[in-house]
């Protein structure tokens, strides 16, 4: 896509070092900056080797790692480093990105095995390297760092992530009142940017392929806990399902990696609690005593 204007490490070293640049020529070679990696002071910088997973479905049967030598400065994000590679060394390197400010959720990668957003991870924290960049784990790889999001999109639709009203609770005009306290009940769960880091962190996503997954369950809980919503009954059979909340074994890694502090692990455990309560209520008073 477009060239990064964000901390563009253009003032860096010669382009290729141990790689074969394909196509586009590199920046004018300049004196190589010092390689002082870890000391990331205000003027830190150097070069780092990125080991990027490549997989081109028209050429290869299995992925492999390709090395790129990339100049960096204090403010160079991992995403900047990747766009630099794309602009200067390897135009066919493929990855998703857009906003550069950790809100669009496009640029999730595995950085040295950990799921991270490329735009808010900085090369300085991985110096002197090498830094291994792979597609998000537990996803099918479409190409290079691009993974298949369609299973998630199906899960998202399945959990009915919208306000459901019912006849007993007509929507007031012009709008609802909602106190700050009522907002806090779901606020944290409404911060999810669908970046898929939690899916990459969750071993159950990899093992139980029909698991709705942390983010989708969290969105169901987000609406269940919203005072304007009356759709919890409608979402219950989706959550209380073999592929719903029950594959979750509470590893907790989803919450650890979440870049927005959403805490999906909490949402899922609360969904389990609410589901158990619904069972108990159904046992004591079937169909809420409405005699269906």
């Amino acid at each position: 896509m477009t060239e990064s204007s964000h901390g563009h490490p253009g003032a860096g070293a010669s382009a290729a070092d141990g790689v074969q640049p394909v196509g586009a020529t590199a920046e004018q070679p300049e004196p190589r900056p010092r390689r002082d990696g870890a000391a990331a002071g205000p003027e830190a910088g150097g070069t780092i080797t990125l080991q990027v997973l490549r997989y081109r479905p028209d050429r290869e049967d299995a992925p492999y790692l390709q090395d790129f030598e990339v100049p960096w400065r204090t403010e160079t994000s991992v995403l900047d480093a990747l766009t630099w590679v794309k602009d200067n060394l390897e135009p066919s390197l493929t990855f998703r990105w857009s906003c550069r400010m950790a809100i669009c959720g496009s640029c999730g990668f595995m950085l040295n095995g950990e799921p991270k957003l490329g735009c808010e991870s900085f090369v300085r924290d991985y110096a002197p390297g090498p830094l291994r960049i792979e597609p998000l784990a537990n996803h099918a790889v479409e190409r290079d760092l691009v993974v298949d999001l369609e299973p998630f999109m199906a899960s998202l639709r399945a959990v009915q992530p919208y306000v459901i009203s019912d006849d007993r609770h007509p929507v007031p005009e012009p709008g609802n009142r909602q106190t700050p306290e009522q907002m806090v009940a779901y606020g944290q769960y409404s911060q999810c940017i669908n970046c898929m880091l939690c899916y990459a962190a969750c071993p159950q996503v990899g093992l139980a392929t029909d698991f709705l997954g942390p983010a989708a369950v969290t969105l169901a809980v987000r609406y269940n806990k919203d005072s304007r919503d009356h759709g919890a009954d409608s979402r219950l059979p989706i959550l209380d399902n073999e592929g719903g909340i029950w594959p979750c074994t509470f590893v907790g890694a989803c919450s650890t990696v979440c870049p927005k502090g959403v805490d999906p692990a909490a949402a899922i455990q609360q969904a389990k609690g609410a589901t158990a309560q619904a069972w108990a209520a159904e046992f004591i008073l079937p169909h809420r005593g409405e005699g269906r």
Binding site: T2, R56, D58, P91, F95, E142
Partner: peptide, 19 residues
């Protein structure tokens, strides 16, 4: 303009050149 990439899927080299 040069488009190096010829892969039919997720060809962002090509797409960004169209952009």
């Amino acid at each position: 303009v040069q488009v190096v990439d010829t892969c039919p899927v997720y060809n962002t080299d090509w797409a960004s050149t169209i952009e």
